[in-house]
Design a protein around this nucleic acid. Structure first.
Lengths: 342, 342
DNA sequence: ATGAAAGCGCTAACAG
DNA sequence: CTGTTAGCGCTTTCAT
């Protein structure tokens, strides 16, 4: 490395003609220091561009002010918006954010977390954890030593905190609203490897059973639900599925899939919502920009992130774990209408 | 904090009945260790769930394996996709990523960077730096002590590395293609506070001057270009501007603005591209999902991120700074067509 | 092949 | 009010 070496507290002490303890005191302002020495020290700090080494400080104090975040993907705006919320909240509490992307891969998810733990994070937030990892002992072990909060994770891990939207309730609301509009053949589109999909499918099944119309053919798993290809994959699947099962409505587990559904309909010359209704989930910004605008369940991502941040901090400071379930709301726009015969 | 205390190297040494040096050696595998002791140590590590403390290691070695990233906003998918590229590349080199969001605020941008420096990052990547900060001494000072790379930053800072798309070239290509289609009243839509906009406006001006049709009324600054409100703000501005200046085409500095333009046209009953053409910039995923699909300049965000990562690493390891300019390509979709009288 | 010890940059008693 | 010192968890000579 080229470049000037960073000044240390010792350099500053020498420059100012005081001890390192005094420098530390003026930096932290936690003990009285005579005004004139403070001035001298400040001058030295200024002159040498001294920046305290947080790593050293935290090592000494046996604490940490960084929190680790693991996302399955950055592709879905859902995650970006959640991260935004986390970042904003965490900043207020003077923590920094170490971000890792698991790329929808359970092993990489574990690797990310190990790396984060090695970096001595004060706590960990995992967004939409991989189902498989939740079933193994992995997270159980982890929760014993590191404050851990899941966003939209549903397996019970002792000691972990949770924040989620009421996805089950949201799904039921979505389904109910569709049903009331006369839709009796509702195709559910889901993805793989996340608990959220399981939760939603379960609600779908019980709702449909209640109505006495559960049809296994009306559940479609399009695979990875948060990748660059999700929209196009969904459209591809639906190109075959739609003519085959002729649903009156398509109820999707996220907005990416819903946009894929929109595109498939366009290709099949089905007009949305006249010929078929499309329901989204999440209410990412994208849902307002497509045509027709998506009717979708809002997940309030920013708040999801904020809440998660406050829960890690609470766990870090007081050892308390908690569960927060945020309500969600149906955003009615233009992709859902009354069912028609066709 | 509740929870078990993390084991340290000392605990492991005791458990295995060896010295800390030996434990260090088996952890790092950098010195010969007798097989049986290695086994004993490994067992102790396993038993105590020992994870080496990276902070302590790095303090000792006076190095760092974390790199800091500053984005102005997470709202525009442009940034998410760039971060994705950085994350993937950085991971390969065993670095971790400390993410900070400046929320489009120059002061917060500085605060982010200071926090990152205090955390002893090995290097820094700043995406779309704030124009104002680039003009002050701030980055100049910084570059003297910390490896620094800008993504789409244009002020010359000695010692910094740069990666950008050829935004000037891209703008010219976009304009040329519009011009060839007969558009002679091209409204340019830009944002504030980023060098990118300046670069593009400059190209716009000289291009229009060359054609002898430069009209100050045809340059519109919609303010913040990467916020939640960008799309709607743009639409609002355009609702007034479009009837007033009656352009044949709208050339936008990013896709968010272009989507806003699309929405404004819809509201004004202008059909795109029949009545007016809309040109985007970036080619974020969004641009494929709106209707009509955006014709736009691809910026290849992932590669932008990857390249930036490789440049920081190069600067960290060898002290070399470099400039990379990636080419970009016009993606012709459905929002641009020949100019019509109207 | 292994241990003892110094020291990375910092804070926090403790002693003046 | 200020200086001295121990030690955070780790790596790395230097001995053995």
């Amino acid at each position: 490395m080229i470049g000037k070496k960073n000044a240390t507290i010792v350099d500053v002490a020498k420059e100012a003609g005081v001890s390192v303890a005094t420098v530390s005191r003026v930096v932290n302002g936690n003990y009285p220091v005579k005004p004139e020495t403070k001035v001298a020290v400040s001058a030295a700090i200024e002159k040498l561009h001294y920046v305290p080494n947080v790593q050293a400080r935290e090592l000494n104090q046996r604490r940490s002010t960084t929190i680790g975040v693991v996302v399955p993907s950055l592709y879905n705006m859902f995650f970006a918006e959640v991260i935004d919320g986390i970042e904003a909240a965490v900043r207020k509490d003077k923590y920094s954010l170490l971000l890792n992307c698991a790329q929808n891969d359970p092993e990489q998810e574990q690797a990310c977390i190990k790396a984060l733990v090695a970096r001595n994070v004060a706590g960990l937030i995992v967004i939409s954890p991989n189902t498989q990892n939740m079933q193994e002992d992995f997270y159980k072990q982890l929760a014993e030593r590191t404050p851990l909060v899941f966003i939209n994770g549903y397996h019970e891990i002792p000691g972990a905190s949770y924040v989620s939207n009421d996805e089950a309730g949201g799904m039921r609301t979505a389904l109910t609203s569709l049903w009331k509009l006369g839709h009796n053949r509702i195709l559910m589109v889901r993805g793989s490897h996340s608990d959220s999909y399981e939760v939603k499918e379960k609600v779908y099944r019980s709702f449909m059973e209640e109505q006495g119309v559960l049809d296994e053919n009306l559940i479609l798993d399009i695979g990875e639900g948060n990748s660059v290809e999700t929209v196009d994959n969904t459209a591809d699947y639906l190109l075959a599925k739609l003519p085959e099962v002729r649903p009156t409505a398509v109820c999707c587990c996220n907005d990416l899939m819903a946009v894929g559904a929109l595109n498939a309909c366009k290709l099949l010359d089905l007009e949305v919502p006249r010929d078929v209704s499309v329901m989204g989930f999440d209410n990412v910004s994208l849902s307002r920009y497509v045509a027709p605008k998506l009717t979708t369940m809002d997940q309030n991502m920013f708040q999801l992130g904020e809440s998660a941040a406050s829960l890690v901090v609470e766990k870090i400071r007081f050892g308390r774990n908690k569960k927060i379930v945020l309500g969600n709301m149906l955003i009615e726009r233009d992709s859902v209408a009354e069912a028609h015969e066709r």
